[in-house]
Design a protein around this nucleic acid. Structure first.
Lengths: 351, 351
DNA sequence: GAGCGCTGGGAGAGCGCTCTCTGAGTGTGT
DNA sequence: ACACACTCAGAGAGCGCTCTCCCAGCGCTC
């Protein structure tokens, strides 16, 4: 007790002495490997408890060459660079609940394995380099990558550095990386089927930015389904996923197509903006116009009326992404695998 | 090149050989210590570039006894325990934009020092134990603690384990820990002064849960200021920071005090709920009722009308919290310091 | 010119762990 | 009875780095 206090925390050696066995045996017990006599296991475990031993992570990973942790990297938001280092809060990416739900899923999954993610932001060329070099130092065994926009070079940089890596969402260019994604087309289809079923005759949509794959797919799925239902033409305004852009798009739609009675909006935040404009325009939702959102974010529940919306199982997707990464770290040679999740329709009062 | 590929990544030894100096010298150059001849520094740097050397984090922290990273721990949300481990997504804490803004501030500050936080959730007794043991293994040199509610035992557990630690928000019980906090009373005062100045005569408030220190302080500051302005009595309904509770509280307030023409709500989300109820009740905001929120969250900007609100500089607070922790890690013996931030009033259309 | 401090660099001892190798002890087959 | 396999535990060599010695060289004082 006293000498331990002087020497810092107890080591394997201390436990071994306490238990009257060798370091190797204690190590075996701790890592649960090979055949150790049960009675000796007991003695060792008692010694561990007595000394209050905790394995030293650095020493362990020095020899195993494993960090025992993974990084959660949020990338993008800085295609254009040359940004000053004096902008530490630039980009509210982390404050986006979408990202929060991903963290939730990742943390929830990792903790079951006694792990915790390293949170990193890669929003400029410099930051991306820093991330790669940091990971190469062995701070993490792999990376979970949430990329904000197209043409992000980070996935390739990580693969180039030999780091296991899984993406959230399919990469725009084909890169040999595992990923999880949502069947966005099916989400669009769900919305379309629902609006038709509700009896809407004049259906329009507000899409996300069309350089984003997910936006394209949601729109395509929506249009395809409507075409099958006999609506070959669907008015569409493009937004950029913000509330204001939703308001703008709705106003434009209303001006050009005042007869609209059914609306699909590519995310909940824009849908909330659309609701504002519809209300100001004197349209009742859902009586005059039925509105379907996308994501099932908190904005959907807090909108008035609450939004019917296409739900992405983000937490489950994030958990699966994490599982894929851990698998890959364990077996680097295994074939790449990707998992596509199906969206579901959440019915609320807006339709 | 070829032998390096065979042996994994290059080590100090490799760089030393390439540069024709000793390991120690290379180490000195990398860590920028002591006097190394500039010409030799140059040679070494070239050798580092040539070999593509990256220092091995594990080896380094084994000898320095420093992890070189800190943990961001979100605690609480599980006073009551005995929860099954099968609930990985329980608690949407991480999806809360409030927490997102904290992460943003922390990450933004740390990255300037080439560091990244470890994200941990401590929402049950088991999880808290796991967190402490994980940190004791040396995964991080200290913890940033965001505690969700009162009587969280984690701060004391961490201090007990000898881990440097800084809290976001003042601990309910006096614990010898540094913290950052907002002058919540001043926030309440700002709201009161503003409503009085706007000419409101019948002022009411919706408070947060009154077992939370911040809620108490906001209410007390609000009441004190109103009393000074000659409003000794202020109707108050207690909410729990959710949208629904804001709706409920507003309905109750409206029923008992239909004459209300000024309202202070202890957070933006509840204020948004209040706005819904006011609109349904046919009251115009701000003409009939002026509404002030708290936080300046995204809900404030997306509300209709946009909310006048008391702004917490969360990112700055988080950055300062991080600075305090790093200071403490560097100089463990230094006196505890805490920093209180002043709120500001953000004027929008709701008043 | 002997003694001194001061600077620049090398040698080498670990940090705490894992893991291979070795060897003692215990069955099992013929 | 002996060879052989098999189980279990210890010895010891590192993993890659830092950091404390230690020593060589140089310029200075007296």
């Amino acid at each position: 007790m006293s000498d331990r206090a002087a020497k810092g925390s107890p080591t394997l050696e201390d436990v071994a002495r306490e238990a009257g066995v060798s370091r190797a045996t204690v190590s075996r017990v701790i890592n649960g490997i090979r055949n150790v006599d049960p009675s000796i296991q007991d003695v060792v475990r008692r010694a561990i408890a007595a000394t209050g031993y905790v394995p030293n992570r650095a020493a362990r990973s020095l020899v195993t060459r494993r960090a025992g942790s993974v990084a959660l990297v949020v990338s993008g938001a800085g295609e254009d660079d040359g940004d000053g280092p004096e902008a530490p809060f630039r980009g509210q990416v982390l404050a986006d609940p979408f990202f929060g739900r991903i963290s939730s899923g990742v943390v929830g999954f990792l903790r079951q394995r006694g792990m915790h993610p390293l949170l990193m932001l890669a929003d400029s060329t410099d930051a991306r380099k820093q991330v790669v070099s940091y990971l190469r130092q062995g701070h993490a065994d792999g990376a979970l990558l949430v990329s904000i926009h197209a043409r992000d070079p980070l996935p390739e940089m990580l693969v180039g550095a030999g780091l296991p890596c899984v993406l959230f969402a399919r990469p725009p260019q084909p890169v040999p990386i595992s990923y999880v994604d949502l069947a966005h087309r099916d989400g669009g289809r769900l919305a379309a089927d629902h609006l038709v079923e509700r009896g809407c005759q004049h259906i329009a949509t507000i899409s996300g930015p069309l350089d984003v794959l997910a936006s394209q797919d949601r729109l395509a799925g929506f249009r395809d389904a409507l075409a099958r239902h006999g609506h070959p033409y669907v008015p569409c305004e493009e937004g950029n996923f913000t509330l204001e852009s939703g308001e703008r798009a709705m106003a434009a739609l209303l001006a050009q197509h005042p007869e609209v009675d059914g609306l699909f909006v590519a995310n909940d935040l824009m849908a909330q903006g659309a609701l504002h404009v519809l209300r100001e325009g004197g349209r009742k939702v859902p009586e005059d116009v039925a509105v379907v959102g996308f994501d099932d974010s908190s904005a959907a529940a807090s909108a008035r009326p609450p939004l019917t919306t296409v739900r992405q199982p983000i937490e489950e997707m994030a958990a699966e992404m994490t599982r894929l990464l851990l698998d890959r770290i364990d077996q680097p040679d295994r074939r790449l695998t990707s998992v596509i999740f199906e969206p579901t329709l959440v019915l609320r009062q807006s339709t």
